[in-house]
Amino acid sequence: MTTFDDRERAFEAKYARDEEMAFRVTARRNRLVGQWAAEKMGLTPEETDAYAKAVVQADFEEAGDEDVVRKLLGDLLAAGVETDEAEVRRALETQMVEARRQMMESK
């Protein structure tokens, strides 16, 4: 019976590691897309850092990416940047690939 218990604990540990990695990748993606948006808005380096952190925080409002898309799109349009939801979603996808790459390199 201990073999099954050991396997169960191993699966649970793997699940926990996978979930933590997914969280870290998403947070990194949000930071990167925040930097992308800040560049489009012409923010200073200090403002860019603060804005990227705000985008990461925005992701905690609700499950999924809709809260991040709303924040980015609203902020970009308010800053006078011509964009649309499709461009923001493309940036999210592009930055997700980059975030995964960065996380894999940091291991």
Rank of each mutant, 00 (worst) to 15 (best):
T3A: 13
F4W: 09
D6V: 06
E8G: 06
A10K: 08
F11S: 07
A13Y: 03
K14Q: 08
Y15H: 09
D18Y: 02
E19P: 00
A22Y: 00
F23M: 06
R24Y: 00
R24G: 05
R24I: 00
R24F: 02
V25F: 05
R29K: 10
R31M: 14
R31D: 12
G34T: 07
G34S: 07
Q35W: 07
W36Y: 13
A37Q: 03
G42Q: 09
T44C: 07
T44S: 15
T44N: 13
P45L: 06
P45W: 02
E47P: 01
D49S: 14
A52Q: 10
K53D: 11
K53N: 15
K53H: 14
A54Q: 13
A54D: 14
V55I: 15
Q57W: 11
D59N: 14
F60R: 14
F60W: 08
E61W: 00
E61T: 09
E61C: 04
G64M: 00
D67V: 07
V68R: 04
V68F: 05
L73A: 03
L73N: 04
G74V: 12
D75T: 12
D75P: 09
L77K: 15
A78N: 14
A78T: 13
A79E: 08
G80P: 01
V81G: 07
V81K: 12
E82V: 02
T83Q: 02
A86C: 03
A86V: 08
E87C: 01
V88T: 03
V88K: 02
R89P: 02
R89S: 01
A91E: 00
L92I: 04
T94M: 06
Q95W: 07
V97N: 11
V97K: 15
E98M: 02
R100Y: 04
